[in-house]
Write a protein that binds this DNA or RNA. Structure first.
Lengths: 219, 219
DNA sequence: GTAAGATCGACTGTTAACAGAACAACTGTC
DNA sequence: GACAGTTGTTCTGTTAACAGTCGATCTTAC
């Protein structure tokens, strides 16, 4: 009910640019727009029922997120990942989330943080009964939450700008394979490590988790 | 000669958007556009002699770089940093550059890498005779080169999207204070550590460098 | 005096239309 | 048959104009 009233208040009216951005991001990360696809502005603007100007602004954001890349003459196409790039993405991701773990361990009062992270894990467990997409969302939500709780806005922003790439990596591997990484226990291990406040153990746990995840994805 | 012909052939004609992007980035990171300044599209497009549409595209990129932030009703203004944010930025930077160091240490043939990094340090030494801006450019170039030489495009991209924030941090502190971090010896220590291939030592050296740098900047 | 309402101005959101460059196909000449 | 010149076509780069909304200022009624 709270969500309804909120949407009634004003959250509903997002700009066309944001809607287009969300739609494109989703289309790319679900594979509806396959890697390598040429994105022709005139076509796309007609499909989305918006003008080229508005579309172009959304495309600039996607470009900087790394979901689309520019070819000759400014021609844009859906980015194509290979195994090495996925490993690279997860290396950077590990570096960021390890930093998050270290900052969380340095907090004096970690109780509320631990509580929120365990709640996120509970949601993962619930989502396990739903479809694959739900599990992936729950997983990403856990990791995003970890970054957010540090209070380091730059860290959260950097992670977010990597999120699209992570989603593309998941799609590259296929959902069935990707969900092998969504194990509840492995995430509990991370929170357990955070709870002890042992930064070294926490970063090692995350590092192992990420390395394993990347290996699963690249097969 | 190849380089000359290339610049004559096509590097000259960058799009208006890119020119505007470069001009704005420079204006912001040099303080010409002070933090908090409201960026009114109509004014700015007139100043830069470009249309609003083109300008808006450039602004989207700057927004994602974190140089400008959106207020109420999509109104954009130059971002204002405080001491905590600078520490946060340098924490993330340290995480990224530490990863770079680890990846470089893992390379089998580091000779060419070491050579290029020492060349970058030599340029820092030469720039020491020039103005403050030159020293800062040389410093950033060294760190950017370190990320680039890993061959991890995602890492380089993440670092680059942080570069604007680093420049803002430098401006926040003032150039005179910032150049204290541009010491040649401290950068040589990093390369020395990389040369040994001892990843732990290298990351510690960088971590200490970054922590010290942030402390100098926030004064 | 003050609060509700009307009017104006200043911006952003959005769009349609105008250039111009690259690529492909077609034609004519030798 | 090969090749230079010439149309078209298809895109992106760029612009000017329209629409809507928020806030400020001025009015008016009580």
């Amino acid at each position: 009910m709270a969500a309804e009233s909120m949407s009634l208040l004003g959250l509903e009216k997002t700009s066309l640019r944001q809607q287009a951005l969300a739609a494109l991001r989703r289309a790319i990360t679900t594979g509806e727009l396959a890697p390598g696809t040429h994105l022709v502005e005139t076509e796309l603007s007609e499909t989305l029922q918006i003008s080229r100007g508005t579309l172009r602004e959304a495309m600039r954001e996607l470009q900087q997120e790394g979901l689309i890349s520019a070819g000759a003459r400014g021609r844009l196409s859906v980015r194509h990942l290979d195994a090495k790039e996925i490993r690279d993405i997860f290396s950077v991701r590990a570096a960021l989330e390890s930093l998050a773990a270290r900052e969380l361990c340095a907090l004096e009062d970690r109780a509320s943080v631990i509580k929120e992270l365990r709640a996120a894990i509970d949601e993962m467990a619930e989502a396990a009964e739903d479809g694959l997409e739900g599990r992936i969302e729950a997983d990403l939500n856990f990791h995003r939450t970890m970054c957010r709780l540090t209070g380091n806005e730059t860290l959260l922003h950097s992670w977010r700008s990597l999120e699209g790439n992570i989603r593309m990596s998941i799609m590259f591997a296929g959902l069935e394979r990707a969900v092998r990484n969504m194990d509840v226990k492995r995430h509990s291990d991370i929170v357990d490590a955070l709870e002890t406040g042992d930064a070294t153990r926490a970063t090692e746990t995350i590092g192992a988790h990420m390395e394993g995840a990347a290996s699963v994805l690249v097969g």
